[in-house]
């Protein structure tokens, strides 16, 4: 079990990485900056489970809130609109 590295309110950046294979970090979020909304819990690693392995060690999972304008500079809604994405800790970097 890993102790959670981030707490709600912290600003984080999603790592840029483009490996093949199963990941649950959407392409559109990579390299983007958001704010931790909550810690969802500690969950088995899907990138391991997908290949029939144990998924250990388990990872903290967060909901990270992104401003739409951070994700899409040409976003046509309003400045306060957001997307929340669940992300496992190894994809997040502190800022």
């Amino acid at each position: 079990m890993t102790a959670a590295r981030f707490t709600p309110g912290m600003t984080v950046r999603v790592r840029r990485a483009f490996q093949p294979g199963h990941v649950r970090t959407p392409y559109y979020a990579r390299g983007k900056r958001g704010v931790v909304e909550r810690l969802c819990g500690i969950f088995a690693n899907p990138e391991e489970l997908a290949y029939g392995r144990s998924g250990e060690p388990k990872l903290p999972l967060y909901r990270v809130r992104f401003a739409q304008q951070e994700l899409w500079p040409d976003y046509r809604g309003t400045a306060h609109d957001t997307v929340d994405i669940e992300l496992y800790e190894h994809w997040l970097e502190p800022i």
């Binding site: 959407p26 999972l61 609109d81 997307v83 929340d84 669940e86 496992y88």
Partner: peptide
């Protein structure tokens, strides 16, 4: 508007 992308658990 808050969109929730249900990416994980």
């Amino acid at each position: 508007l808050r969109v929730h992308d249900s990416t994980a658990d």
